[in-house]
Design a protein around this nucleic acid. Structure first.
Lengths: 172, 172
DNA sequence: ACCCTCTATGTGATTTTGTAACACTTAGAG
DNA sequence: CTCTAAGTGTTACAAAATCACATAGAGGGT
């Protein structure tokens, strides 16, 4: 397999927040912010890691590890799975990207810096992903956990449905 | 108990709700309820499907498709992945089992019959899984979805952390 | 400089998870 | 009984993730 499977070029579509916005600047800002934070916290934003983050920011959608790997190969980095997975592990561990369990894919964090428990809206038609905030441990789940004596450390919240664009198309 | 196959033995731990309870009867009841519902709704609870449901009820924890497949083989059913996946698809589609995305595994539904949007607590130490109710679309996520024009159809809510038993062990 | 150590990267191979495609069987409708 | 559609079985394969081990650099202490 060569390049990205079903996920294709990055120009059109309205991935992240289901709405368009100035992209070049938002990517640049996010990278700068990541660099600043890594410098502050003595984290090493190495070339591979930086490239992966850039990629995810640029594509602005969920990408599988192997799609990322294709880009890495094209950029002259190693081309074996561990290269991508290790970079993704680092980025996810420090909150620069999130894993979308439902898709076995990764997406750049939309609220970097702020500590948060993310929730995602995933379009079942076009796989666009939007990130929102959630506080699942505050509601019924939190109560159940307290009642059961379960200590929540992290939560995965992923809503599947139709994004505005695909809903409009489906209406037709 | 199906004498321990080549997969994990069913150590009796305290899986589902993080607490012990009479198991033989709860399995029997659940199977009877599933049969009743299938009869009512003209669904076909075939031998393979029934076996898979039994298995998940009996083990009372999340099992991977291939672990299930091992049991199916031992029970004389087909031994190729599609056999297990198809049965699981059927059971999940009708709410008899749930998929735990975080673990790529399946667990019998703990609240069958009642239409619900499940939430799970997953122990990161022992992989025990407890099912709770959730209403994610009611909170911050629901608001974000409405604001974005996203139509939620289904949500995955999975909390990772420490179950009471493992927390106690960790304290020591 | 040098050595030492720890982290990160590169690579090959393998395991685990999930699908596609197609043939065979069988339950149930007409 | 015949036809059809759903269910099952199997081969083959694709996709996702990890293991094991070798190499390369960064940083620290002397």
């Amino acid at each position: 397999m060569t390049s990205s499977p079903r996920t294709e070029p990055s120009n059109n579509a309205a991935p992240l927040g289901f709405k368009q916005h100035d992209h070049a600047s938002c990517v640049a800002e996010a990278i700068a912010a990541a660099e600043a934070r890594c410098a502050r916290e003595r984290l090493r934003l190495t070339p591979v890691r930086r490239k992966v983050l850039e990629l995810l920011l640029q594509e602005h959608r969920a990408l599988g590890a192997y799609a990322i790997l294709d880009h890495l190969r094209d950029a002259g980095f190693g081309s074996q799975p561990p290269v991508a997975y290790r970079a993704l592990d680092f980025l996810a561990e420090h909150g620069f990207v999130h894993k979308i369990e439902r898709l076995n894919a990764f997406v750049a964090c939309a609220h970097p810096g702020t500590s948060h428990s993310p929730a995602f809206m995933i379009c079942r038609e076009c796989d666009a992903v939007a990130e929102a905030q959630s506080a699942p441990a505050k509601g019924a789940l939190g109560e159940a956990a307290r009642a059961a004596g379960f200590q929540i450390e992290r939560t995965v919240v992923e809503a599947e449905g139709l994004c505005p664009d695909c809903a409009a198309k489906a209406d037709a």
